[in-house]
């Protein structure tokens, strides 16, 4: 993925983060969305390790050794921040208090199944908070490269990897496209500048319905 394509994807996906929302951003790419939030949109970020109102990352010299986000980055507190224990942190997740979570993916299936925590024999770090976020957040969107490093589509008919949660994904943002998960499968709604509908269809290992109007981003 070129830097250009990545920036464009982040800019586009950041529109998901709307004024007034309480949001959990997954480790990696999703965390970077913070830097692209629409001007004037006030959002409150949740971190699994026990914080609401997560502030920007800080340089090591200014870091508080007791203040990290769930990815281990040193973050700051804001006016309105709160700290709490891990039970309360996931109580608000399971209770449905979050409005949105943005997660990464190894595979997303056309019915909204998500696999993002384990590759048997290769990557077995454990589940962390991924199941609860995927299963219990009212809106789950995926931010990922369209294809893996070997050029295989991450958007598939059926997940082959162990699932994180069934039918949990509402929308997928990639470097190539924006797709919504409908009752009967995926619909292609937007494509990256410079690509054609055929390019996206060819790069996708699941059938795509095509929206009447395709927007470029």
């Amino acid at each position: 993925m070129s830097l250009d394509a990545k920036t464009r994807m982040l800019h586009r996906a950041a529109h998901e983060l709307k004024d007034g929302m309480f949001i959990n951003l997954g480790i990696g790419l999703p965390t970077q969305l913070v830097n692209y939030v629409d001007e004037g949109a006030n959002v409150c970020l949740h971190s699994e390790n026990g914080m609401s109102g997560v502030g920007p990352l800080v340089p090591y010299e200014k870091a508080d050794r007791n203040l990290i986000d769930a990815g281990g980055g040193y973050v700051s507190r804001l006016a309105g921040s709160a700290f709490f224990d891990s039970a309360l942190s996931f109580a608000m997740v399971r209770r449905g208090r979050l409005d949105l979570t943005v997660l990464g993916a190894f595979e997303v299936a056309m019915n909204g199944d998500l696999a993002n925590w384990m590759i048997p024999g290769k990557f077995t770090p454990g589940i962390g908070g991924a199941i609860e976020l995927a299963q219990k957040t009212p809106r789950v969107v995926i931010l990922t490269t369209h294809q893996d490093k070997k050029g295989q589509s991450k958007i598939v008919r059926e997940c082959s990897l162990p699932l994180t949660a069934k039918k949990c994904v509402n929308r997928i943002y990639t470097d190539m496209a924006v797709m919504d998960v409908l009752e009967d499968g995926l619909i292609l709604k937007e494509i990256a500048d410079g690509l054609s509908i055929e390019d996206v269809v060819k790069a996708t290992a699941a059938p795509l319905q095509i929206a009447d109007t395709i927007v470029h981003f």
Binding site: E48, D85, S86, A87, S89, F90, A91, V93, R94, G126, I127, G128, G129, A130, I131, E132
Partner: peptide, 10 residues
Amino acid sequence: EFNPQGILAE
């Protein structure tokens, strides 16, 4: 033994 994070807490 792996547990979902909030379930370990509970």
